[in-house]
Amino acid sequence: MDTIVKTTARIMFPFILMYGIYITLHGHLTPGGGFPGGVIIATGFALLIIAHKESRVEHTFRQISFIDAKSIAGFGILLLIMFGIFFRLNIIQVEKSLGILGGLTLPSNIFGTIMVATTLVIIVYSIIKE
């Protein structure tokens, strides 16, 4: 696309990423959580994918593997749920010792965000590639 669109996408990308990570990490205190944070991060990546030409996008995507990240995050969620059931971790002792950290909700938010963001980036990349 144009030079204006490319430069604007490159400038806006870290701010969009920071906003998405902020919504995810404060998921247990403010409205938000895993799903909106993942969508916002995916929007930041999708802006970069659409603004640049196809050869450069393909060259970048050969080095990052999004499907591996998605599989690791999915396995992480499964592990967390099994862990929580086995130790019955939503009991008072964990919350009082960790203070403002959200117990088991915080890692679940992070894994959910990684899964949603990688799914949407894979979908946008597949639409562009054809």
């Binding site: 909106p36 969508v39 916002i40 929007t43 802006l47 659409i50 949407l120 946008v124």
Partner: peptide, 13 residues
């Protein structure tokens, strides 16, 4: 928040 992010961000793109 989810509605604005999805509908005004991703589907427009």
């Amino acid at each position: 928040i989810t509605q604005v992010a999805i509908a005004s961000g991703l589907t427009s793109l």
